[in-house]
């Protein structure tokens, strides 16, 4: 196979997999005569989506807003926390057990607590999205800062560099690949957080829509909700993956860039 054909296959392959999956699903439902309230066929799900597209899009937009707001807060807080942990050994040692403990708590368990503090609705969804998304960002920024070569620090310190110089000239740029990698993980977690909060305590959002659909036995509509979440997840992930590629080409040593030899 030529490399050009191989690249074409790589681009087409995800679509092939999805198509095969959906066709198999449809065939199985038809052939085995599975009832729609157990497992609806893809066409039934699509019909449910088209039928309810107005409310679905409205709820999806609500979920997207909650997710993005929570995620934005998560980025702000995560970066700050990561910088603090990454630049001070003492803070790192002190905060580490607390952070691990916090990260071990299933966030579903604290949604009722958030409802108590923030009430039913969007603030709770934003808070849950935030709580799930900041952790990977903080850890990755801290890791990036910790991987600065000690020799380079010596070189800069012997030039009279301040802590801020080290952070802005070396530490943060060095941490960027880690940061962008963590964004891809965090945006997905933010979606999970928002939808969890909506299923527990909200009158809007895809999570709420799915809960309603389930209580009315409108299983195709529930699945339509699942698909909408998955698609939003994939699209946001792709957007951040693209930003990552643009911003940190140096970290992957620009595989498509030309390499000089000799010397």
């Amino acid at each position: 196979m030529t490399s050009r054909n191989r690249r074409r296959l790589e681009v087409a392959f995800p679509w092939i997999v999805i198509t095969v999956l959906l066709v198999t699903w449809q065939a199985a439902v038809v052939a085995l005569d599975i009832k729609p309230f157990v497992l609806p066929s893809p066409t039934a799900i699509f019909a449910a989506f088209v039928e309810n597209r107005g409310p679905i899009m409205q709820h999806a937009l609500f979920t997207l807003t909650s997710t993005m707001s929570g995620f934005a807060l998560g980025v702000l807080f995560g970066v700050t926390l990561g910088v603090v942990i990454g630049s001070s050994r003492l803070v790192y040692v002190g905060l580490y057990p607390v952070l691990i403990g916090f990260n071990s708590i299933p966030k579903v368990a604290i949604v009722p607590l958030l409802v108590l503090w923030l009430g039913i609705g969007q603030p709770t969804a934003i808070a849950t999205a935030f709580l799930l998304s900041f952790f990977p960002i903080a850890v990755n920024i801290a890791t990036g800062l910790a991987t600065v070569e000690p020799e380079l620090e010596d070189v800069l310190l012997s030039l009279g560099a301040t802590k801020a110089d080290l952070l802005f000239k070396v530490g943060l740029p060095r941490a960027m690949p880690y940061f962008f990698a963590s964004l891809k993980v965090s945006i997905t977690l933010a979606f999970i957080g928002a939808v969890i909060a909506e299923t527990i305590a909200s009158n809007d959002g895809i999570g709420y829509l799915m809960l309603q659909a389930s209580s009315q036995f409108r299983i195709p509509l529930m699945f339509a909700g699942v698909f909408v979440i998955a698609i939003m997840g994939i699209v946001t992930y792709l957007i951040f993956a693209l930003i990552e590629r643009r911003m940190t080409g140096w970290a992957t040593r620009g595989r498509d860039m030309q390499v000089a030899s000799g010397g």
Binding site: E149, E151, L152, D154, V155, L157, S158, L159, G160, V170, P173, R174, M176, T248, W250, A251, R253
Partner: peptide
């Protein structure tokens, strides 16, 4: 304290890849 009139180079070139 750290001098400010020094240039340093190590075995590891430590150039900034970005």
């Amino acid at each position: 304290g750290p001098l400010k009139i020094v240039g340093m180079a190590f075995q590891n070139p430590t150039l900034l890849p970005w």
